[in-house]
Amino acid sequence: MDIPRYWRLKNQRYRLQGKKCLDCGNLSFPPRLVCRKCKSRNCEPYEFKGMGTLYSYTTIFQAPDRFDQMAPYMVGLIDLEEGVRITAQLTDVLPDDVQIGMKLEMVIRQIYEDGPKGPILYGYKFRPVLKF
C-alpha cells in the first residue's frame, strides 16, 4: 500500500492541479518545483479545466499487475486547452470510435484497487465530451 502518496497527490489526481510560473506564466502538469521554461521557483498551484483534444493513443493489452482488472484499456496523449500535453487513460469509448483530434473531457474514475484490502485509487481519465 502506498497511502501517503495517494493522499499527497489527491489534488493532482482529482482536480488536475498543476503549477503556474508566476514569473513567465508557463503551465506545467504534473506540477514542477522549478519552471521548465525560466527556471523560476516562484510557482503557484493551477487547476486545469480538464478539456482537451486527443493527440494520439494506444491500447494496452498486457497491463501491469495493478491495472490487470482494467485491461484492455486505451491510453491517450491529450492536449489540454491550456496548451499542456498529458498522458491519461481513455474511458467510455470503444476502440473503433476513437479518433485523433476528438474532443475529450476529464472525468474521475477508479484507477485501480490496491488489492482486496487496500485503498481504491481514484483519478482523472478522459472521455469523449458529452454533448448536451
Binding site: Q69, Q89, D92, V107, R109, Q110, I111, I120
Partner: peptide, 9 residues
Amino acid sequence: PGKDEDTAT
C-alpha cells in the same frame, strides 16, 4: 457501470 465506475465516481 463501466469497469472503472462505482458509486463514488
